[in-house]
Computed example of a mutant assay.
Amino acid sequence: MPFVNIKTPEAGLTPAQKAEIGHRVTDMLVEYFSEAARPHTMVLIEEVQDGGYYRADETFVIPDDNRAR
């Protein structure tokens, strides 16, 4: 069973964007593993709260302009 875990900053994506990512990732994996993989493919999109990401030794907080609306 293909399993993909995507972590993204909280509120960075709309529900529609997350659904699109899930569909596109599934389609990509089906290209590699065949259509038989589709019903067994799992795509998990986890939102990490602000302050839970670190980049270049600094706590990452998503800018308000980048938050999904």
Rank of each mutant, 00 (worst) to 15 (best):
Q49H: 11
E47P: 11
D50L: 08
K7N: 12
D27F: 06
S34C: 05
V43L: 11
M28R: 05
V43H: 10
P2V: 07
M1L: 05
P39R: 09
F33N: 11
E10H: 10
I21G: 03
E20I: 00
V43D: 14
N5T: 05
P9W: 08
G52D: 13
K7T: 13
E10A: 15
G12V: 03
I6S: 05
F33V: 13
R38H: 14
S34E: 15
A36N: 14
Q49D: 10
E47C: 08
D27R: 02
V4H: 00
P2W: 04
K7H: 12
G12D: 04
V43R: 11
R38K: 15
M1P: 13
T14F: 00
M42S: 10
T8F: 02
A16R: 03
V25A: 13
T41I: 14
G12E: 04
Y32D: 10
T8N: 01
Q17R: 09
E31H: 00
A19D: 15
A19V: 11
A16N: 05
E47S: 06
G12W: 02
V43T: 12
N5V: 08
F33S: 12
M1Q: 03
I45N: 07
V25Q: 04
P39F: 11
H23N: 09
Y32H: 13
D27S: 05
A19F: 07
G51I: 07
E35Q: 07
E46V: 13
A37R: 00
Q49W: 01
